[in-house]
């Protein structure tokens, strides 16, 4: 019987270990968000979100981070729109037009899967060299191009996952009614419509949070972004640059930027979650 007792004891120990592991992992989320909230909340004032930094972002003690907020919103919105405009058709093409199981289909899908994991610093480095070669300086445009390249694989992959959920019968039915491929594709799009918003939100989240890509291509500026060929501030870089400043007020701007970025990300996550659950209800 002692053997049985030992085995049951092991079972209990293992269970406790697993619970601890789970708590550590989920706990780390609250820990990270909590740390940022704790540090950032005192600095989150109206001045912070309504003004640009005064006297230089690295040394000036006054002003806020409006330049970075606007820069990030511009950058992420335009890149996401471009990536959607390019990524959705590619996905549709691969799933409706290209023969299932063909080399082109499998090769392209695998490639986008793999590209999904390529770090943004590599995209940034390439875009930077390209810009040097073409004589473009660091600018909003450079950032948009880089981030668009970065987000296309995300859009393609997410939409592809969605299209997999479309019943095969739907394709057969629309074809047998005499529909063209494009008409069938529109049917598919209607079927996955709520999911497309999820994909867009995901891409937007990734675009607004990326830092390695914009570090080399977008530069930084104390002014509000006005022209696409001028450098622009972004939230991630506002955090990155200002955090290392020796001046507490400037560090404060970094914390506030981190908090705002966290808010934006959390809003996106909540929206995707709501969309996803609504979609599921819709299906049943």
């Amino acid at each position: 019987m002692s053997n049985v007792k030992k085995r049951l004891f092991k079972e209990k120990v293992a269970k406790v270990c697993m619970q601890l592991a789970g708590i550590t992992i989920t706990g780390s989320l609250f820990f990270i968000v909590g740390t940022i909230l704790y540090k950032g909340a005192p600095y989150l004032t109206w001045e912070m979100i309504s003004e640009t930094p005064k006297g230089g972002f690295y040394i000036g003690k006054d002003g806020g981070i409006l330049n970075a907020i606007l820069g990030s919103l511009y950058l992420a919105t335009v890149s996401t729109a471009l990536a959607t405009a390019i990524g959705v058709p590619i996905s549709i093409y691969l799933n409706v037009y290209v023969k299932a199981g063909s080399f082109l289909e499998r090769f392209s899908k695998l490639l986008f899967d793999v590209l999904f994991g390529i770090p943004s610093i590599v995209y940034g480095a390439i875009a930077f060299s390209l810009m040097v070669w073409m004589g473009i300086r660091a600018s909003l445009l450079g950032g948009i191009i880089t981030i668009t390249l970065l987000t296309i694989p995300i859009v393609v992959r997410t939409i592809d996952e969605l299209l997999k959920t479309v019943p095969v019968d739907l394709k057969n039915i629309t074809f047998s009614l005499g529909a063209t491929q494009w008409e069938t594709a529109k049917m598919f799009l209607r079927y996955i419509k709520p999911g497309i918003f999820t994909a867009i939100l995901l891409a937007f989240g990734r675009a607004i949070g990326d830092v390695a890509g914009v570090l080399l291509t977008t530069g930084f500026s104390d002014n509000l972004p006005k022209y696409i060929d001028e450098p622009s501030a972004t939230l991630p870089l506002a955090i990155f640059f200002q955090l290392s400043s020796p001046i507490p007020e400037v560090q404060g701007r970094a914390y506030a930027s981190a908090l705002i970025l966290t808010f934006i990300i959390l809003i996106i996550v909540i929206c995707t979650h709501l969309l996803a659950s609504r979609q599921q209800k819709h299906k049943i």
Partner: peptide, 10 residues
């Protein structure tokens, strides 16, 4: 979904 830079801040 949390961006890398926030992990860095943490």
């Amino acid at each position: 979904a949390i961006p890398p830079v926030l992990y860095g801040v943490w």
